[in-house]
Nucleic acid binder design. Structure first.
Length: 818
RNA sequence: GCCGAUGUGGUGGAAUUGGUAGACACGCUGGAUUCAAAAUCCAGUUCCUUCGCGGGAGUGACGGUUCGACCCCGUCCAUCGGUACCA
């Protein structure tokens, strides 16, 4: 019998599509299970990361379906984004055309991999029927005051005359032009995610099914801290306000650092060449946090002094390149003795370092580095001897009385800038009127459709040069006005797609009751790359709350359980074209079939860890698939079509008992591995062990064949979420009339699990000295006796004194001697 | 820099709640089958020591807790992800 995986796989896929196996509707009689994988960006063709992501999602979906649940597994396309624009420049193809062609090809690949999607729910975020609803929601939020406009910096390439993404800035230069990138201020829209900061933080506690690491990262990202806002007054000028979480160090402040765009800095620069030159040099700087933190810290003294709020002593104001106007107040108080960055800056510019905190029981040593821990105050006048907590309240009370400070809760989280000066994105539905200001596009005029038939050359966005797009009438006064030509951050689309799958055909509303059904308690399982642990997941949580507050949803959190999968590596590093270490999934599918590829990618590593690709490993997986094929086919020829579906359980011999025990212990393990543990690699290892046992079990008496028939059916069912095509085929070949995908997960036979003999290990002083075979549930005293009788054990005890004996029932005896 | 992970044989990995380190697989070695090969099957495969039984060492490094540590704690090293305009 030839193993023709191509025919087998095509026929199974045809069966699922024709029978609409994975198309679902709301059904209140069944428990729902919404299994969602992060949708792909249609970059051209699937890469191994996609294959891994979707194989995991598919195993979970198919498994849950066999448990009898109403399983929704949708898929779609995160279709707006930068790569389409880059491709457009390179190939002179409009981004829309490129995107649609990619979607078409990649959809074929998903079908070929056998993923069980409800294709009727497929969506692409670049379709107006999709993005009209995020435009609609935006106008609602606009009216609610959750959207505002403010100036913010972008990376400006002065040669290409275009805004660059952070990844397009390499060593401070534009990736294409090589020009030094400048910071440029542009008026942009922001969403008040900080209004939800407390709830986003609090509700992390509700995410019981999320990895602790992701929850920690989100908590730290939101970064709630309690501190003091302090005013440093300057004669004849506005005071400088700073925020600090360490008011106990206030007496150690030796200078103030302000941003180069701070109003005071700009004022001073007007008649000071040195300072204006410094400010100018700050303009060619990367905006990313990583670049900011690692660059050389530079500053310039202004000669302007402010008053210390407690002592009234003069404190010099410096302009520093590491303070940003956009975040916080644009100014920080500097305590070099107790902050490492301030310490290094002070050493560099010979500024005073004044220690005011010391460890509880010793003197402070700041000869080499700052002392950043909390301790006891000294040299702080009336605050001497206070600890952090006492100092916090006394100092804040003192400042409060002087009206120079107030207690403030601060978040690291900043409002979400959603404007992009790009073409291939969702148009921001705003009209700018000379007389009425910025107004949301009225609901009846939505969607604002992005023109798709454009020529794209990379110099600015085409719609910024299209009067037919941007000329319009003001919805309020009716006079000629200009439409907004910026588009949304593409995180916008991916922040709510999980809800739209439930009702993508709704043309009269964003969501309806079907979304409430599928999102009850959230998506049951979300699967995607760990690289989305902060931004995407935070924005999606935010959007869920926005939609809830709009009355569209009832759940507080979008994703009940989260599985973050690791990357697929080749030769120890991420696959990339530049490294030339890519593996094309298509090639592998053509050569070995989808089942083999799925099996390998699930077997090679646990899902949350990075996975090292191996062509040889893939061949090993292919051998296993063939082994299954041979096992079932040789069984079919052994039985010659006769019925072996009944087992006589009364007189099983030891070998038969052992096989049934193996079948059911494997079933128990695989069920747990697929369900609770999401440990697909160990589930597959167990299935390989069972297969090896069945291959060796070659008895051909009637009852043995019946036992084998039972075993093979269970084996195929357990394998079917992982390698669905061959299991579909072989299950049918065995004479089953029902398709395996429609059957239920097998039930464990508890009797088969019972073993009469077990192995117990014996240690002496924690070192393994013997393994003894004995009955189950022996008394401790009996176990102890058996252990002592062992020759090797008694050799190691010899005439030493036995201090104690530790016994773990049915597992271990540890004899401690002296 | 900061936040979060990860580190186990020649390789990918297993050890689920602190209780046999190396399951399963790849590779390699030897054997069976074959005219020969492929495929398949069987045996072996952490390192050192021993004819063998056995013994010693060993989970990135160093230290700690414990009868017992890959697992818990501390310090450090390396690699990876995120760092707000890649998705």
């Amino acid at each position: 019998m030839e193993f023709d995986f191509k025919t087998i796989e095509e026929s199974a896929q045809k069966y699922w599509l024709e029978n609409k196996t994975f198309n679902v509707e709301e059904d209140t009689k069944k428990e729902k299970f919404y299994c969602l994988s992060m949708f792909p960006y249609p970059s051209g063709k699937l890469h191994m990361g996609h294959v891994r992501n979707y194989s995991i999602g598919d195993v979970i979906s198919r498994f849950q379906k066999m448990l009898g649940k109403n399983v929704l597994q949708p898929i779609g396309w995160d279709a707006f984004g930068l790569p389409a624009e880059n491709a457009a420049i390179q190939n002179k193809v409009p981004p829309a055309k490129w995107t649609y062609e990619n979607i078409n090809y990649m959809k074929g690949q998903l079908v070929e991999l056998g993923f069980g999607y409800d294709w009727e729910r497929e969506l692409a975020t670049c379709h107006p029927e999709y993005y009209r609803w995020e435009q609609w929601l935006f106008t609602k939020l606009f009216e609610k005051g959750l959207v505002y406009k403010k100036d913010a910096e972008v990376n400006w390439d002065p040669v290409d005359q275009t805004v660059l993404a952070n990844e397009q800035v390499i060593d401070g230069r534009g990736w294409r032009s090589g020009a030094l990138v400048e910071k440029k201020k542009i008026s942009q829209y922001f969403m008040r995610i900080t209004d939800y900061a407390d709830e986003l933080l609090q509700d992390i506690n509700k995410l019981k099914g999320w990895p602790e690491a992701v929850k920690l990262m989100q908590t730290n990202w939101i970064g709630k801290s309690k501190g003091l806002e302090v005013d440093f007054t300057i004669e004849g000028k506005n005071p400088i306000t700073v925020f600090t979480t360490r008011p106990d160090t206030l007496m150690g402040v030796t200078y103030l650092a302000i941003a180069s765009e701070h109003p005071l800095a700009i004022e001073i620069a007007q008649n000071n060449d040195k300072i204006s030159a410094f400010i100018e040099s700050c303009k060619t700087m990367e905006t990313s946090e990583a670049a900011m933190e690692t660059m050389e810290k530079k500053g310039v003294a202004t000669g302007v002094y402010c008053d210390h709020p407690i002592t009234g002593k003069p404190i010099e104001v410096w302009i520093a390149n590491f303070v940003l106007m956009g975040y916080g107040t644009g100014a920080v108080m500097s305590v070099p003795a107790h902050d490492q960055r301030d310490y290094e800056f002070a050493k560099k510019y010979n500024i005073d370092i004044k220690p005011v905190i010391k460890p509880k029981d010793s003197d402070v040593d700041i000869s080499k580095e700052a002392f950043t821990e909390k301790g006891v105050l000294f040299d702080s006048g009336e605050f001497d001897e206070l600890n952090f907590k006492e100092a916090f309240s006394k100092i804040s009370a003192s400042l409060l009385a002087k009206k120079l400070g107030k207690i403030k809760t601060n978040f690291r989280l900043r409002d979400w800038g959603v404007s992009r000066q790009r073409y291939w994105g969702c148009p921001i539905p705003v009209i700018n009127c000379e007389f009425c200001g910025s107004l949301p596009v009225p609901e009846k005029d939505l969607p604002v459709i992005l023109p798709e038939d454009v020529s794209f050359d990379g110099v600015g966005s085409p719609i910024k040069q299209m009067p037919e797009f941007y000329n319009c009438d003001c919805p309020s006064c009716g006079k000629p006005a200009k439409r907004e030509t910026d588009t949304f951050d593409t995180f916008f689309e991916s922040s709510w797609y999980f809800a739209r799958y439930a009702c993508k055909d709704n043309t009269s509303g964003m969501l309806d009751d079907r979304a409430k059904y599928w999102l009850k308690n959230g998506v049951d399982q979300y699967v995607g790359g760990v690289e989305h642990a902060i931004l995407h997941l935070l924005y999606a949580r935010f959007f869920n709350k926005l939609m809830r507050d709009e009355g569209l949803l009832e759940n507080d959190e979008p994703f009940k359980n989260l599985l973050t999968q690791g990357m697929v590596l080749k030769d120890g590093s991420k696959m990339s074209k530049s490294k030339g270490n890519t593996v094309d999934p298509q090639e592998m599918i053509s050569k070995y079939g989808a089942d083999t590829v799925r099996l390998f990618i699930l077997f090679a590593a646990p899902p949350t860890q990075d996975l090292e690709w191996s062509d040889q490993g893939l061949e090993g997986s292919h051998r296993f698939v063939q082994k299954i094929f041979r096992l079932v086919n040789s069984f079919i020829s052994d039985t010659n079509g006769a019925d072996f579906s009944h087992i006589d359980l009364t007189g099983l011999n030891a070998v038969q008992k052992e096989i049934r025990n193996k079948v059911y212990t494997t079933l128990e393990k695989v069920s747990d591995d697929l369900d609770r543990r999401h440990s697909f690699n160990t589930a597959i290892a167990a299935l390989m062990e069972l297969t090896n046992s069945l291959v060796r079990f070659d008895k051909t008496d009637a009852n043995s064949l019946s036992i084998k028939y039972e075993a093979i059916n269970i084996l195929l069912k357990m394998l079917s979420p992982i390698t669905p095509h061959i299991c579909h085929h072989l299950f049918k070949e065995l004479g089953n009339t029902e398709a395996i995908v429609d059957t239920f997960w097998p039930k464990v036979d508890k009797i088969a699990l019972v073993k009469d003999e077990i192995e117990v290990v014996v240690q002496v002083n924690g070192k393994l000295r013997a393994k003894i075979s004995c009955g189950v549930n022996l008394e401790n005293s009996e176990l102890e006796k058996l252990a002592m009788q062992d020759d090797n054990v008694s050799r190691f005890i010899s005439d030493n004194e036995i201090v104690k004996i530790i016994i773990v029932p049915n597992k271990l005896v540890n004899i401690v001697v002296k």
